[in-house]
Write a protein that binds this DNA or RNA. Sequence first.
DNA 1: GAGTAACTATACCGGTATGTATACTAACAA
DNA 2: TTGTTAGTATACATACCGGTATAGTTACTC
Lengths: 192, 192
Amino acid sequence: MEKEKRMTPAGEHVLRVASGMFYREGIRAVGVEAIAAEAGVTKKTLYDRFGSKEGLIVAYLRARDERWRAWMEESVGGEGRSAKERLLSTFDALEGWIQHENPRGCGFVNAAAENPDPSHPAHAMAVEQKKWLREYFTKLAEEAGSETPGDLAERLVILHEGATVAHSLEAATDTARKAKEIAAILVADLPE
Amino acid sequence: MEKEKRMTPAGEHVLRVASGMFYREGIRAVGVEAIAAEAGVTKKTLYDRFGSKEGLIVAYLRARDERWRAWMEESVGGEGRSAKERLLSTFDALEGWIQHENPRGCGFVNAAAENPDPSHPAHAMAVEQKKWLREYFTKLAEEAGSETPGDLAERLVILHEGATVAHSLEAATDTARKAKEIAAILVADLPE
DNA sequence: GAGTAACTATACCGGTATGTATACTAACAA
DNA sequence: TTGTTAGTATACATACCGGTATAGTTACTC
């Protein structure tokens, strides 16, 4: 569905620069001219690689999504710990992510806020990312022996998103830790 | 600090129209020209009333904030129910608000997402609104006899924000109810 | 009845947005 | 050697952005 353009060095560099600007300043607030200038590249190169600003936005969100999933899955780990521990460790993953890559809130929530139209790719990708998170939680909840894994997963999503937003708007401190403590109560009845 | 311009019929109408457009389509996505046209008013009228687009944005957020606080305080009510009940009823207020005025997520979170610069009025007002919510919860938590009202309030904020975001990105259903159930656990030890 | 506040109508301004066109260079591969 | 790919540099097209200027109208008030 998406033509996966082969990446060149200049293309990768543009994507890296644009990702930082999009996240820090907002997608609509940043123009292609500014991106090209910041990357030390001509607009032609940018358009040769990404086709349009929207193409660049999609590439930005896709790359961010991949990094997020990798971060989460690596933090959670596989064997060696119980499913219940893995469920709770998603909040440790979130804490690290917030500190290192997410001071300004969730990039997908922000992208969706800037593009309310559900048919817009940015909005659709945000929905997609949250769907992945919910299904990932559902899988972990099943493994942990929950009788209502879908329901538990939704509650964990609420805690995750709440921790992210509350942190970015300075409504609370140490939000990932607090969310984890609440989650611990929710999974207290699950077998170790 | 803010010159409170007297409102005229045309001014109020512009504000009402602009509020709907800002919320539905995004602040940056809507131009003053489109607002004036939609309101059936000339740009001169708009600028006479609000001075600038930013002035209109501030008026939009301020009005929304006032409606939100009124909605919350009225839903929670005063006497006749225990402080614990009032704490939990904030989630009923949220549920109604989401259904009637908030299908696209929190207007303040969205505004802050579009304006990452903390010195921007829209961002500052979003932070302010969340601060109010936290302090409101703190007050209710104190009245309910919590030994750590500030901490409890922050956890409730996380649940509120999470429910709002999760709903708007279709990551979960019935989010306010689920958040309320979680909150009920958090306040279970408080006296009736 | 003169002044003023709130409006309409319309034209205009400079800046900036996304996107395109043209011409040239360097590296590399058939 | 000839063509292709990935770049640079620069100019341009077109549209729209927030905001202003000028002129005229209606209605209420002192």
